[in-house]
Design a protein around this nucleic acid. Structure first.
Lengths: 358, 358
DNA sequence: TTGAAAGCGGTACCAA
DNA sequence: TTGGTACCGCTTTCAA
């Protein structure tokens, strides 16, 4: 695929084809093809002759031609729905960074490669790509990306919003279980007024979280205290935390930050509000950021386990691709709560450090 | 590409081909093709008839077949050399995350899509992919990845190590200028004993940094103080900083952390060593992490500008691809020092802004 | 204006 | 064992 055949350019050598090798070796296309692929039965002499000719000429088979015969390209399109406004920025989020690399790894292990697609793209952008399937990570509500792939009958792996539609496969994070686990944990550590910080985006995950939080509060006779950030990024999240802790109303005794932000920064914001962690306030952040383990005290995190999401999704997709079935499939994957000192009552005395309070 | 033709499976509908549409419309392949591509000259009636038939049948052209005709796939392989040990983990680094997404965006704008390749991969992994070119981000010394692509005559974009080799294109960060700018800046703020924290990896960038640092120290009669981390990640970097500040020897009055780590964590480590920033110690981190702007005080950062690297590299690659030339090209791109309060002498009192120099 | 046929570069079936 | 040939699905030239 290296060269568009251009006659005029002296620098561009026309690419060596199978026929060229055949001619050089004094054999036929067929024989050379079989020799190079190790498929046919032939004398070692001939096989070696073909190989030698190929080597001499620097022959490299044309991938497109092989694919045309093979009937598939082992290529999967990958797009992220949520970041439609700022396409190309999703990698800045540890969650999406990990999801992306885990998806690529899982696919690669099974012989498929990922093609990075822009967040906002119509069929025009991928119609010319030989995609065997597509992945839309965190689609928006009624994401056109999703609809386009379904309309084109491209096998699709995305979230639960497509449940039941032929040719689709979903994996969802167990939002309900996650929220309950965190709230129960905090309650178990003595918290009675746990506030939640949510991002402004409207994805399935976040609305599910809101629902469960309200329901849990109802069940435990607690007053919901929910703050939404102004936008993505550290600044807005820190701002929301500050507003929550210094604003009017009863002060929370625990904080569950679901909006993605740097855990050390969140911890810092709490401290600047004059509160000690975990003594005055228990803290849990939903984050994939490894820095959470290195703060003082370390910050408890809820991991959405992007690697698990990727692994499970690719598994479902591969099963469908290999069977050729358009039967929809799906799965829920658990989150993982990593309890550290920031949400362990009493850890303040036991493990306290020279924490900087200001 | 959706289906491997499978006769037995009742669920799998054989894919509609151009001939099918032609038959349905009572026209020939040629006419339908021209009608759908808007190429030929024909009556509007016929064109509409062809389109209608295609729509009715849900026809989607086979991308591979078109590519075979077109002679290119507009696909670029993308691999990261540095993370060969832990393939798939590079996205965790903000630098590589941004480099990757910026590269994808730049390529996409020009009609090329990126194919994610595993860090450690031989020709076998990509031989069947119709790649028009390849990118190896931060190759190791004599990276086999690089050699394989060059041997296969696949146009390659990577770092300066390939300078001058036909079919290669390089972009390098101006390490020398970067180090001088940071050291000069710190000296201008009163620092006389600037220490440097470097990662253990051996990439061009890091050896260039070491060289320049030693030379600069020689020029300014300063004693070089250089610490290397035990490995990648926040923990080792923080450990190195702690060792540097609490260990034996004269205490540095400025720190230039080139190993990638979460800036809030580095700041925290300095504080736990009992030092105030910027009063006792000036701090500059090489980092793309946005959290640096939100600490108290904000941390000065040196950005390697991955977006610029990507943009420039894709530009060079595209120029070569479009001209078909194998003439090697290359460029150096500048870094960007974002001076914030952590390296502004007296900012402790003034509450500095985040002024941008350069 | 429309269509038949020749490729694009391989692979695979079958006959020699 | 080896080679002729059809074919993957589409585009394009050229003749009708």
């Amino acid at each position: 695929m290296t060269d568009t055949p251009r006659r005029g350019d002296p620098a561009a050598t026309p690419r060596i084809r199978l026929v060229d090798v055949a001619r050089e070796a004094g054999l036929s296309k067929t024989t050379v093809s079989a020799a190079l692929n190790g498929t046919g039965r032939m004398s070692d002499t001939v096989r070696e002759r073909a190989r030698e000719a190929a080597r001499r000429l620097g022959y490299r088979p044309n991938a497109t031609a092989r694919l045309l015969r093979a009937g598939h390209a082992r290529l999967i399109g990958y797009a992220v729905g949520e970041f439609a406004r700022d396409p190309g920025s999703y990698m800045a989020s540890p969650y999406f960074a990990q999801l992306t690399s885990a998806t690529a790894t899982a696919a690669l292990q099974r012989g498929y490669a990922l093609v990075l697609l822009p967040a906002r793209c119509g069929p025009d952008e991928w119609a010319d790509l030989p995609l065997d399937a597509a992945i839309v990570a965190d689609p928006l509500d009624d994401d056109p990306l999703v609809e386009d792939f379904i309309a084109a009958r491209v096998p699709l792996f995305t979230d639960r919003s497509v449940e039941g539609r032929p040719g689709t496969h979903w994996v969802d994070v167990d939002a309900d279980g996650a929220v309950r686990e965190v709230l129960d944990h905090l309650r178990g550590q003595g918290a009675r007024r746990t506030a939640v910080v949510l991002p402004g985006t409207v994805t399935r995950f976040h609305s599910a979280v809101t629902d469960t939080y309200r329901r849990w509060c109802g069940e435990h006779g607690a007053a919901p205290r929910l703050v939404t950030t102004d936008g993505p990024g550290d600044g807005p999240v820190v701002g929301a935390v500050e507003r929550l802790l210094t604003g009017p109303g009863p002060r929370p005794d625990a904080l569950f930050v679901l909006a993605e932000a740097s855990p050390p920064l969140v911890l810092d914001a709490v401290r600047r509000a004059g509160l000690g962690v975990p003594d005055d306030l228990l803290l849990v952040c939903a984050s994939e950021d490894a820095s959470a383990a290195h703060t003082h005290p370390p910050v408890s995190t809820l991991s959405l386990q992007p690697a698990l999401v990727a692994e499970k999704g690719i598994e479902l997709l591969m099963a469908a691709l290999e069977s050729g079935s358009r039967e929809p499939t799906g799965a829920v994957v658990p989150t993982r709560l990593e309890v550290r000192a920031s949400s362990s009552a009493g850890a303040g005395k036991l493990r306290s450090t020279g924490a900087v309070r200001r």
